[in-house]
Design a protein around this nucleic acid. Structure first.
Lengths: 348, 348
DNA sequence: ATATAAATGAGGAACGTACCTCAAATCAAC
DNA sequence: GTTGATTTGAGGTACGTTCCTCATTTATAT
């Protein structure tokens, strides 16, 4: 309804507030040496005009360049591949405006090797770093060292709660486990047993997911008996045999909850047992195999996090940390998504 | 790992390609009058340097101002309020850079009044319009008229498939209904009846949701009998009584699917009947009442769309339409979200 | 070789903000 | 009323791109 004239600029503020451009600039950018009264005059003019800073012009003038490094585990992993892809996407969009990204890979399980590799990177000129690594004393040390060098540090996907990291971008694993538990409880009506599998309970994520899962199961679905976690220790063959064995030996099994990766092996075991139809299967992470599992009705629900959000959030957070700006926490909370066959509408 | 020098600019391209700045500009902005060979030289240089256009500078120089109008139904509606809020948020962020937004309210159910109000808006200088209105012949006419005046038109949340609208930003209602159906089927194990309620089946959304719901129910859960849709015609009291009556008279009821708004009345009826615990309740739209319903276990699942995404997507699409740029459809697909008690982690 | 058209170059202004310097004005304290 | 400190003003340059004009060079057709 309102007529559009053309956005007010700093010049307009100066005119309306009857001060100079320099003063407007001082107020706008919080520089010192301006009387309270003058600040008010300027702010009044800003409000009166409905002025909003032109971000494009500001960024251009500021010439701020951010240099961020993402540290990802090496080796084949659907999840990490997705992060890589999301980083590429983000880089092409405005979210990564004025940032230079570096992505480096580190060995997955050797903390010393991780630290060695990370110590070799040039910290000068580096504004922030996002770590996707397991928490170990060596990593905690490293985080402290990075912080001391003035680098913003965030944990991505998997938290480093006992380190000095500035922020964690990712989902609350306990809540993710609780969500799985709630779904499992609703899916499995009668009394019976639930099988829980993962790569390794040494991983914090799996521990926390199990914790959340059990919380809900115990309080809301006591008729379901959750069996001890089966671990494959990153061996797909072992995973398949263990799961298959349980499927054969436990006739009262009503559900299967896979907390880690290795879902391909789980699916193979399920297929061999021919018990797929009678079991409710819930797994984590939306990947090509789990997507296929949803479509084939072998998986009932996938608990996922949107990796695009994860990456964009990480970039926003790193940027704000670098500029010592506050972080709008609510915006950075990564949703726990429930994906089933009918709402599987993600771009493939 | 790679050293950061400082981003290459158009000047660098010109230097490396051994052409003038003007030529680089012509190539970069697809202007005519450049030989194929020269275009290649420039593109080679761009690739060699890894040049990426500085969006801030480009936007600033281009001085493109977008003027968009959002047309929302008036009257109290949680959903519309959320859109309003999301628009405000978007306006404060970079997504609405260089756009001036107008929001106008129109009567909800009177197509003539809507058209009258919309005809009164000044089309000159308007780049695009987003419509949240029901489809009627009058609206289709209006869309055609707006298109003829050179205004980009998108349907928001609710599609106008038989009009000349350029794009639809929202979820596929049939898929949303299918998702609800799948959830309901998984939640309700035994044979029994499912109650379906809405404001009005005249609304396309409700029709399509019911269609999707029935598809899944019939093919996957034939043991469940879906009752005819109950309509409240926007009368909460009527809704409450109708639902309450069914709850009393139908002992075999296992589930309740609410496709439209008016969930407050549905919840009241449910509470009065004291049958909440035995029923699986699935509703649409995450609003304060449905959020409360999730927390109190009266609602089992909410099918929602992320209104923030909806609005940001609308702005992106309108912008691209105005610039006659292609739309990246996969990015604009709005997800159907399944929200339950344990993944209800939205900012309140 | 000439006429004509097409392609390219050179240069500059503009966008709105940030940030700088130096001078001038205003204020506070005595 | 003077001194010294604080506040304000005036003016400029820079950021990287877009878009413009006009001159010049190069290619094409005759």
């Amino acid at each position: 309804m309102s007529k559009v004239v053309s956005k007010p600029t700093v010049h307009d503020i100066a005119r309306v507030a009857r001060v100079s451009l320099a003063t407007v600039d001082r107020v706008l950018n919080g520089r010192s040496g301006v009387r309270e009264k003058t600040i008010d005059k300027v702010n009044d003019a800003i409000r009166e005009l409905g002025y909003v800073r032109d971000r494009s012009a500001a960024n251009l003038a500021r010439q701020r360049q951010y240099s961020f490094t993402f540290v990802l585990p090496e080796g084949p992993s659907q999840f990490v591949d997705t992060i890589r892809e999301a980083l590429r996407d983000a880089y092409a969009s405005q979210i990564a405006d004025r940032v230079t990204l570096n992505v480096i890979s580190v060995p997955t399980h050797d903390p010393h090797a991780i630290v060695r590799k990370l110590l070799s990177i040039d910290v000068s000129g580096l504004d922030g770093i996002a770590l996707v690594v397991p928490e170990t004393p060596q990593i905690r040390d490293l985080v402290a060292r990075l912080k001391a060098a003035g680098v913003a540090v965030i944990a991505l996907a998997s938290d480093l709660p006992n380190s000095e990291r500035d922020f964690f971008v990712g989902v609350d694993s306990v809540a993710a486990g609780r969500t799985s538990g709630l779904l499992m409880g609703k899916f499995a009506p009668d009394a019976g047993e639930i099988l829980v599998v993962t790569n390794s309970m040494r991983a914090r994520d799996s521990l926390e997911r199990r914790l959340g899962f059990d919380q809900v199961m115990q309080t809301s679905f006591p008729h379901l008996k959750v069996l001890p976690t089966i671990e494959s220790f990153d061996d797909p063959a072992r995973m398949e045999e263990l799961v298959y064995g349980m499927l054969i030996r436990k006739p009262r099994l009503l559900g299967l909850y896979s907390m880690g990766s290795g879902n391909l092996a789980v699916l193979r075991a399920l297929r061999r047992s021919a018990r797929s139809a009678e079991l409710s299967v819930i797994v984590h992470e939306l990947t090509p195999p789990t997507r296929a599992g949803l479509l084939s009705n072998e998986i009932d629900a996938v608990i996922a996090q949107n990796v695009g959000h994860l990456v964009r959030s990480a970039l926003r957070v790193l940027r704000n940390l670098s500029d010592r700006l506050p972080i709008f926490e609510a915006q950075e909370r990564i949703r726990i998504e429930i994906v089933m066959r009918e709402n599987l509408h993600y771009p493939s």
